[in-house]
Write a protein that binds this DNA or RNA. Sequence first.
DNA 1: ATGGTAGGTCTCCTA
Length: 261
Amino acid sequence: MPTTICTWNINSVRLREPIVLKLLEEQQPDVLCLQECKAMVDLIPTENFAKLGYSLIARGQKAYNGVALLSRIPMEDAGHRDFVGKKDARHVAGRLENGVTIHNFYIPAGGDVADREVNEKFGHKLDFLSEMQDWFATDTPEKSILVGDLNIAPREDDVWSHKQLLKVVSHTPVEVDALDAVQKSGNWVDITRKDIPDGQLYSWWSYRAKDWALSNKGRRLDHIWATEDISNTAHSSRIYADARGWEKPSDHAPVFATFDF
DNA sequence: ATGGTAGGTCTCCTA
């Protein structure tokens, strides 16, 4: 059975309920993983999602962060982890009936300055990545998918200008190395790049551009990974950039992967 | 080199 997973940083699930419904109706993913819901769990509008057959597993907080799984196939809550000693709703996991675990992450953005001595948000980001690395090294994931807004564009062709972004948070060598270490520690395979190995690929375009599509200064911040035991069942991936141009859009586009479990 | 937009909200913090 093909199973389609989608990840999308929604930047307020309440404000963007209409386009979440549009995506569910139009694309019918089996599981939609959201980040930056920016709401307590009981304030997430579930009624219309349920009408389309989607149930909710979420972790939330007021105004910031928040991650959710909307699934139209049976899924149980597989818990969450609080990273760097904060209860800031940046991770939640769900488990499908076939035993596949889906981890949904919202890694800290890291602020503006790529130096932990002067910017504690950058330190928080690096500590978060380090804790992810330790966790996956200690507790090796199997039959797992990891998705989310990882806030790092690792490859030269994951950004509009490698040279101009080398010192910009999201594409600095220290972050890229840390993300690589996380990937290696859990034996994760980058499914999007396995399916689409060549060419520029972006999932985020700033709100600040006059014309995001024309200037096309994007970055691939949103990722779908899988452990090696199921990575060979992945057969297609896409980034649905059209959604960046929808009414009242998120600044992120949905990223899709389909697996034959 | 600078400033640009957006969301949620203890009118400023985060991205």
